[in-house]
């Protein structure tokens, strides 16, 4: 795929590419551990996220999948509320306005603030609702996490106010599976369903297409992924699922053309 073509297909690609640092594809043969369970003993391994060292043993502190990479032991959570991290791209809605910015609900327990300075274009300070109004949906990036809350930014490519489309919500622990290795799953979904998909790390997913049927198809596929987390070769399975669904719904997908949105 050459550069130009890539640009045409998906402007939001950049958002999903940076996700690859954290998620990996999760396989069935990985062991599930529970809090207090001894994972490994001896000093050959280092305790990573979700684990702790207790004497000679490395003990799990979370319920999740065991990930042993080289000598680092991590536990990848399988469930639970979204815990924000700097650099995460999230989707949320405006629920309050202050004199210099907006409060965004990103489905996390902490206040998240989007400053008017961080929108990346002109903002009329006398009337912030001209830029973003209550219930407007935005894609934003977590800039910083402080004790009083989260600071968001929209000063990057692909971060914008969302118009149209539909939002669905899945568990944030299942986001890596929807994105797939280096965004493989999400780009496949976009191609096969003819939709635009933006996946927020907080588990909120935006699907946009010209046709509602396409959006519904993508929604079904994402729910399918979220409910079947452990299967190896999930991408192939989803492809098959989509083919079956397409036959059932009797829709044909035309390849997506250049996106009409500005910004």
């Amino acid at each position: 795929m050459d550069k130009k073509e890539k640009k045409n297909i998906e402007k939001d690609e950049e958002i999903n590419v940076e996700e690859k640092t954290n998620p990996e594809e999760i396989e069935q043969d990985r062991k599930i551990v529970v809090p207090g369970e001894v994972i490994e003993s001896g000093s050959d391994f280092l305790p990573g996220e979700g684990t702790r060292r207790e004497g000679k043993e490395i003990v799990s502190m979370r319920f999740g999948l065991l990930d042993m990479n080289d000598k680092l032991i991590k536990v990848i959570p399988l469930s639970g509320a979204y815990v924000p991290r700097p650099g995460n791209v999230v989707i949320g809605h405006v629920y309050d306005m202050t004199f210099n910015g907006w409060l965004i609900d990103i489905a996390s327990p902490f206040n998240s603030f989007l400053s008017a300075m961080e929108v990346g274009r002109f903002v009329n300070k006398n009337d912030l609702s001209e830029t973003l109004n209550f219930r407007d949906i935005v894609v934003a990036k977590i800039k910083d996490i402080k004790s009083r809350g989260i600071d968001l930014t929209m000063r990057e490519r692909g971060l914008k106010r969302l118009e149209g489309g539909m939002l669905i919500r899945i568990n944030s622990a299942k986001v890596p599976r929807v994105i797939g290795k280096a965004g493989s799953m999400v780009s496949m979904l976009k191609q096969e369903t003819g939709t635009n998909i933006i996946v927020g790390q907080n588990g909120i997913i935006w699907i946009g297409a010209e046709d509602v049927e396409n959006e519904l198809l993508a929604k079904k596929a994402i729910e399918f992924i979220a409910n079947k987390p452990f299967i190896h070769g999930l991408t192939e399975l989803v492809k098959k699922f989509l083919e079956d669904e397409k036959k059932k719904m009797k829709i044909t997908i035309k390849p997506i053309g250049p996106t009409t949105e500005e910004n």
């Binding site: 809090p35 207090g36 979700g50 003990v59 502190m61 979370r62 319920f63 999740g64 509320a81 622990a173």
Partner: peptide, 11 residues
């Protein structure tokens, strides 16, 4: 609590 993914020292 474990099922909710909350960090716990043990059960």
């Amino acid at each position: 609590l474990a099922n909710a993914g909350i960090p716990m020292d043990e059960m």
